[in-house]
Amino acid sequence: MKGYVHSFESLAAVDGLGIRCAVFLSGCPLRCAYCHNPDTWNRGGVETEPELLVKKIARYKPYFKADGGVTFSGGEPLCQAEFIRECALLLENAGINYAIDTSGAVALDENVKAVLENAQMVILDLKFADNESYEKYTGVGIKRTLETLNHLESIGKDTWIRTVVVPGINDSEAEIQRYTELIKGFSCVKRYELLGFHTMGFFKYEKLGVENPFKGKQALEDDVLKRLQEFADNKLNI
């Protein structure tokens, strides 16, 4: 089957272990208020055969060494789990690992489970620490994300958790502590990473003619991010 590929980034070194490529699959069930890729919300882009995509990824094998590989991101990559599953077989033959960068907000069907099972690791967005904020800022509840996290714990899959820190919404130690409390019990979580809200995706809203709920908001200051990251690291001890 064909996948809907929004774009390809040959160097996505921070999206997992080693040197990585990133494939951004289009289509997402969430409508996060701070999304910097609103152009990936709808299914679109280039319809691509798994063979062609894997051939492209394989061009970067010289950089991967032991840990590197490809990271499927989006949009929400798990919305195209069947496509990833097909790619995964080809990747395995090519000796290339893959990681999944997901919101976790999908139903854990057979395809999704298989994709998670065979991933080298998973990057899971924990956008907010409570259901109310989730619904308010992403349009969906926290339930599926937590189910995904529980599933990752049950299969012992190495997981990094990421949270975007938005000024005025969750940029305090008290807020961050709510996340760390939630994560604390999970032994699959190997890293907790805070990302600063930035405005570099704002132009896309204008281009798409979509209303930007955070228009006028400032980017998070680097030193605030650094301080909160240290705070989180201390709380979690990872």
């Binding site: 070194a13 921070v14 080693g18 040197i19 010289p62 950089y63 060494k65 590197g68 990473e193």
Partner: peptide, 20 residues
């Protein structure tokens, strides 16, 4: 873009150079 911290950046830059 290269990595989260200095150790990671060093390792990844070595991989980029080797791969190139």
């Amino acid at each position: 873009t290269l990595g989260h911290n200095e150790d990671e950046r060093v390792e990844k830059l070595v991989d980029v150079l080797d791969g190139y």
